[in-house]
Nucleic acid binder design. Structure first.
Lengths: 349, 349
DNA sequence: GAAATCACCTAAAAGGTTTTCGTAACGTAG
DNA sequence: CTACGTTACGAAAACCTTTTAGGTGATTTC
């Protein structure tokens, strides 16, 4: 809580030059003698001068600020994306204005207006599921990039996790470790994430000439459903030797129930989860092999493409971002087929 | 991606008045005829005019923007605080610039400079633990409010959860439900949160004339430690009828291990957790009675006090924010002493 | 009929920075 | 000594909005 902040006028006065010269000296432009430049720099340091970004932006029309519009920060998936994006912004000299519309379209409109009146250079919209969401690109005079939830307009720039590819990774890993009787438990079919992953399972098994054990079991994304599905599955199809679960919570529930039914994981049944939600995947017993959608990278990439779009180099289309297989103990420890781990999850502090 | 944005000059021209009149008309000031005002408003709507906040800020010296400096967004506690703060900002016409210093002091300094050059009206600093952190208030010409982690300067404005009070709530609840042989398992003593809660336990038991069973067991904040501690406790002090755990993960581990050892929860042993981390507290079997530190409210309150401070009405000191007891099934279902639940946690979507 | 009042509107300045253009000083070539 | 190029600096415009002070015309008052 000190006094008024120094302006470039103050700096110029202290250095005994005009504001124009001071500006040029501070911005490293030519046409200013080295000694004069140093004089100005010293003066600026002495006053701890910092250029007023508002004035700069007013003039240049660029604010070096982007808006980050999230539809529901409470959820688990928005945060890592946001984090990755913020990360990319911080690297440059960009700043990010955060708005959480909390799934409310009215609120979203309000925030869009607010962000525009603040003259953001671009917008990144992060959704809470992989289902397409309404495009806002046409209502907005700046570039927009969609992360996690793609825009429903394929001409927009969207980044989504490759759920189908993730499922492939999981199933291939199970097959590689010698499993052949593989089941799939997942979340509500109303989620594109669930159907995409199921499709990945189907295709990969077909390619390997294997048949999926039972139908894909769809329920909630919860541990409870994982336990329930495990009971059903172990009753109806006791011969299974592996199960790929649509998320880590289902997997955790499955492992718990399977153990109570006397099935050993991974010896009798291998289990793969999805999301690599470490509070769960590292706390199950055994720890959980899972697919990491690498959301932080997704957010980072989305942000970088927003920069590109701001520079006029947009990359339209829906881009699928690769996922990673994180091998832990719930699948075949020490099986010779997979001598090298693709990736091993670190431990939390 | 349209053309140049309209300025108030365009609006004035279209309405056939001067910019001054246009400004007054749009800002609801006097000295403008109703018909003229409507003319201007229509023109503004037609051009979808939005005042340039940069120009407004340049003039008024206020940006209606605050910086939100978080030390580690990856952690669990920063997010709800952030959410509550964002919530409070959105209600007014404030916007929030998000910066994640990721626990790095250098980075933090950098962000502070960035935020200041953007002329934020205030700063809210959210930490990742309840341990005091270095004050930055003196380096900064705008009001600062600390949330979750207090400033080490007691003259600053800080908001922290009342961990001691939370522990009191937990222990009183256990006593009220008829438990008398109560143990406490918690996290590392290097955390103020752990020692504060332990102190709350000690005092409350003393007030009730009860003796704590065994020493407070300090370990990691993990489910693993909860299981381990359960084994130790059940071996050394088999007579316990309740345990208060320093967080929900420890509690989840405890419940798991206790069940494996044949102890029924809550019939034989009641368990209370801390944090109300719903992915855990609602998925344990039985569901977990726990203390909700109400972090979202903490963030909200901090933001509101930042507004007050910006208006010159600062409220110095470290403010303890009350916690809530969330009763679920791990403590005495249907015990007559507590006919009304203080609060019941909702379920996740 | 002149003066005072009123309602409505405009011109201009202010806010901080960057950039363009102008200009002064100086050196060099003719 | 003139003409011109170079170097270093300064004046002023531009960005967009709000506010203050002032101005115009119409109406009222004595």
């Amino acid at each position: 809580m000190t006094t008024r902040r120094a302006t470039i006028t103050d700096v110029a006065a202290l250095a005994g030059v005009s504001v124009a010269t001071a500006s040029k000296a501070l911005n490293g432009r030519d046409d200013v003698r080295a000694t004069t430049r140093q004089l100005v720099i010293d003066a600026a340091a002495q006053l701890s001068f910092q250029p007023n970004v508002l004035a700069q932006g007013l003039l240049s029309g660029q604010t070096r600020t982007v808006g980050l519009l999230t539809s529901d920060m409470v959820g688990r998936f928005g945060i890592p994306v946001l984090l990755g994006a913020e990360n990319a912004f911080g690297a440059g000299e960009m700043a990010v204005l955060l708005c959480d519309a909390r799934g409310d379209a009215i609120r979203e409109q309000h925030y869009i207006r607010t962000l525009l009146s603040r003259r953001v250079d671009g917008l990144i919209v992060v959704g809470e599921s992989t289902d397409p969401r309404p495009s806002i690109t046409k209502d907005v005079p700046v570039p927009v990039v969609y992360a996690y939830a793609p825009s429903d307009d394929p001409a927009d720039v969207s980044f989504v996790p490759d759920d189908e590819g993730g499922a492939r990774l999981a199933v291939r890993h199970l097959i590689a470790t010698g499993r052949t009787r593989i089941a799939h438990i997942t979340g509500p079919t109303t989620y594109k994430a669930a159907t995409d992953r199921a499709e990945g399972v189907r295709e990969t098994l077909a390619e390997a000439g294997l048949e999926q054990v039972g139908e894909t079991l769809s329920g909630a994304w919860s541990q409870r459903w994982g336990r329930l599905a495990a009971d059903m599955l172990l009753l109806n199809d006791p011969q299974i030797d592996a199960v790929f679960c649509g998320n880590d919570q289902i997997a955790a529930g499955f492992i718990e129930a399977a153990r109570e039914r006397g099935r050993r994981v991974p010896d009798d049944i291998a289990v793969v989860g999805y999301d690599n939600w470490e509070v769960l995947s590292e706390e199950t017993r055994p720890t959980l092999t899972t697919i990491d959608p690498d959301l932080e990278r997704l957010g980072h990439t989305a942000a970088q493409h927003l920069f590109a779009a701001i520079d006029g180099k947009a990359t339209p289309g829906v881009h699928s971002m690769p996922t990673r297989l994180v091998i832990r103990d719930s699948t075949a420890p020490g099986i010779p087929d997979t001598p090298w781990q693709v990736s091993r999850g670190g431990s939390e502090a």
